[in-house]
Design a binder for these strands. Structure first.
Lengths: 189, 189
DNA sequence: ACCATTGATGTCAGTGACTGTCATCAACGT
DNA sequence: ACGTTGATGACAGTCACTGACATCAATGGT
């Protein structure tokens, strides 16, 4: 065992979610989070770039899951179908995490700064998705539009899922949302 | 004439855009902006909630233009067509502002914090748009999806317009983007 | 002309997020 | 035994942002 208890990073993330939930994001100081995790404030900033980032540790993995699934779709798959496959993979990531997601979303919903951070994470997913589609041979601006549409479906689907009274399958909710998007954009001119 | 030169708010916005462009957003302090505008730092924060907000003074008017146009569309207009009408109205707002928009977008593109703020302004437009569609009788989650799709078209269309080598009409670019979205989501299953 | 009110600003002290720098010390390889 | 490495602590500093109070031109009523 080292000089310090291992897992400082995880303890910081846990302490932050607890404190943001208990007293609110603004009312919580980084010093408090660090104290609860048993480290100093300086150590917090060695693990997380800022006070918001501590809630978004999983964003990278989520983006990877999305991009990988899209990249691995059969080459002849239509862009929007590849995106749908990616959203399916994203849905898998959240299996068994409904309660945790709900708790986290409640914290984010209560603070604009956290919403901003969430939005830029989603924008990063959209950018990676567009790039992946482009690599599959989809031209711009179609790739960018398909990516933005996919993230829109994710946003709406995730919100439906996380606020639903009884737990459903996220992938299923997103499939329904994708169908709803198809319908609303398919209106005859 | 008053004790102070009038138009402090406008001078602050101008000074901020200049300094963010000259030295970068991070390297610019609020004290510098205030000095160039001929006021104190405290006065800056009386006009703008924070260092980022000074670049987004027009966001409210933009949202109003969008919402108004959508609300005023003929009742039998399909949701996506009402959204398209809203985007047309948004396009009008930028007529004659291509150079200024380009300058501003360059500043925003150079800094993640400013991108976050831009994203939450767009999210606010999406929320207002969804609410307006809902008031028109569009059910959820269709209203939310149509709104997100509309904002996606705005994002892509605006980016195309602002980075285009020669100036075009924004409303026209957005119409083309909307058509591209229709195409990509209309793929046979 | 006088005076109370109002509104925009200045002044100043304070909090807290975030950074740069150096010291410490267990673990690890040689 | 010893040098290196990596995570952490300690500490001073900058800057965004806020609260509280003072100032003073303009305004409007008397």
């Amino acid at each position: 065992m080292g000089r310090w208890a291992p897992g400082a990073r995880g303890r910081l993330a846990e302490a932050a979610l607890e404190l943001y939930g208990e007293h609110g994001y603004e009312q919580t100081t980084v010093a408090e989070i660090a104290r609860r995790a048993g480290v100093t404030e300086r150590t917090f900033f060695r693990h997380y770039a800022d006070k918001r980032e501590v809630l978004f540790d999983g964003a990278g993995a989520l983006r990877d899951a999305l991009v990988t699934a899209v990249a691995e779709a059969r080459p002849e798959t239509a862009p929007i179908e590849a995106v749908a496959a990616g959203l399916d993979a994203v849905g898998e990531v959240f299996v068994g995490r409904h309660a945790q997601s709900r708790r986290r979303q409640a914290v984010i919903a209560a603070n604009p700064e956290l919403q901003e951070r969430e939005l830029i994470k989603l924008a990063s997913m959209a950018a990676a998705l567009a790039e992946t589609l482009h690599a599959r041979g989809v031209a711009e601006p179609t790739a960018g539009l398909a990516a933005e549409a996919g993230i829109a479906v994710f946003k709406i689907g995730f919100e439906l899922w996380v606020t639903a009274p009884e737990e459903r399958e996220l992938a299923q909710v997103m499939r329904e949302s994708m169908d709803a998007l198809r319908s609303v954009t398919a209106t005859a001119r």
